[in-house]
Structure formats: structure tokens, C-alpha cells
Amino acid sequence: MTAVIMDGIVLGLQFGILGVGLTLVYGLGGVLNLAHGQMAVAGAMVISRLTDGGMGTFLAVAIGIVAVGLLGMVIDLTLMKAVYGEEGEGRTLLGLLLMLGVGFIIDGVLEWRYPIEALTLRVAGDPIDILGVSMRRGSLVASAIILLVGALLVAFFRLTTFGRATRSVIQDENGARLVGVNPSVVRTSIFALSGILGGIVAVTRAMTTPVGSTDGIELTIFALIVAVVGGLGSVSGAFLAGILLGIVSTVSAFYIGSYITTIILLVVCAVTIVIRPSGLLGVRS
């Protein structure tokens, strides 16, 4: 049981950072990025191609992560401009539909060009014992990276001027404009950051399981579930929900079966919306 829970935490950390990327973009501009997972997988494919071509792993990983960040930035500066020009539910709807389309484009291109490609990043070394459970190095390194990234994110949002500005746009966009924050700049930067986080998801996931070219939709769905359960717009909520759902996921996969697991997660997501639309830590109704 301990081993299952430990695996759950490893998976949950990945879920968490996946959810953070989605939740940030939604919180800032009301865009539900239904291409988030596909963008992450695109990053994985870049890394896979580069390492196959003989490039060193670290450099390839860095390029892959930056590439997803740039992709996010480009999407924000082009398609999303139209979305941000709308207001209220029209904006939400347009954002959702456009990103759904973008997701299909990325997914289709990857499936067409690299139908069987998958990224695996091997972390050498023997398993390490933690609480009596033998943990693979890959899982530990992946978790450590995510925790570090999480800590950096917290520091960024709490302590830096730009981090505060980001939170101000999430909490009250007009208030943010009145103190001199330019919401467009914040949104573009955060869309890029969200892409970078997606790239990090791809990399850390590749340390524990192969990331295939067609896994994008699944990642998007996990991101969506985590973001909703944590409360759309809440970064700490996404991390918390990620870890909880990671544990739920491995426990139910272990004791019940894997197809039920996805259904359980989806039901948790739907029930959260019905019972508490603001999620675990979201405050906006």
C-alpha cells in the first residue's frame, strides 16, 4: 500500500504541474487551453528528434522546453488576441473552441509525422529505498524537479513584482489595469510560462513512462480534471488536487482496474463542478 501511495505522489506531482499550466492561462484570460497536453507532447517530440539526431540530452531538453514556451507565446499573440477582444461567456466559448482546434492540429500533425515516436529519458542508477519502498531513480529525479519548479513558482508569485502583477490580473483585471499592470503582457508571458511548464511535464513524465506522440489528449484531460478539482485559477489548488488525484489514481488502478480509474477521475471532476464549482482552493464562484 505504501508503495502504491508513493507512486501516487510521483504521478500526482506530474498531475499538479500539468494542472498549474492550464489553470494559470484560464485564470488570466478565461481561455481553457484544451491543447495543453498536445503542446507538452510536441515538446517531447522535439526532444526526441533532437536526441535521435545526436544532440546531448540536456541541450535537447532545454530546447524542447523553450520551444513549447515559444509556441504558447505565439498562440497568445495570434489566435488569442481575437479571444481577448471578446467579453464574458463569448470569450470563454471562443477560447475553448479555438484551443480545441489547435489541439487537433498539433495532435494530427504529430500522429501524421511521428506515428510511433515516444520520448523516454532514462535516469541511470539503482533504485533507492524510501520508507521501505524501493523507488526508481527516474521517479525521484522527476519528483525532485517538479518540487523545485513548484517552489520557484511559489516564490515567483509571492515575492516578485511581476508575479504579484499576474495574481492581480487573475483577481481583478480592471483593478490590475488601474495600478498600471498591462494585462496583455502578463497574459502573453504566462501563456509562455504555461508552455514551459507543459514542456517540463513532458520531460519529467518521460523519466517515468514513455511519452508517445498521441498522448496529448490524455494529458490535456488530466490537466483539465486537476485544474477543475483544484479550482480554476488556483495554482496551489492545482498542486494539491494533482497529488490527491495521483494517489486516487494509483490506488484505484491497483485495486480496481485501469479503465475504471479514468472514469473515477472524470466523475470526481464532474462532481466537483456540481457541488463546489470553485474547487478545493479556488475562491471565485
Partner: peptide, 13 residues
């Protein structure tokens, strides 16, 4: 600098 009637503070800060 404008102070609106609705104040537009950042409620969770």
C-alpha cells in the same frame, strides 16, 4: 490614478 466606486481591490491579497 483612478479610484473607482467599486474599488477593484485584489481580494485574496
Amino acid at each position: 490614478v483612478y479610484v473607482p466606486a467599486e474599488r477593484h481591490l485584489f481580494p485574496q491579497m
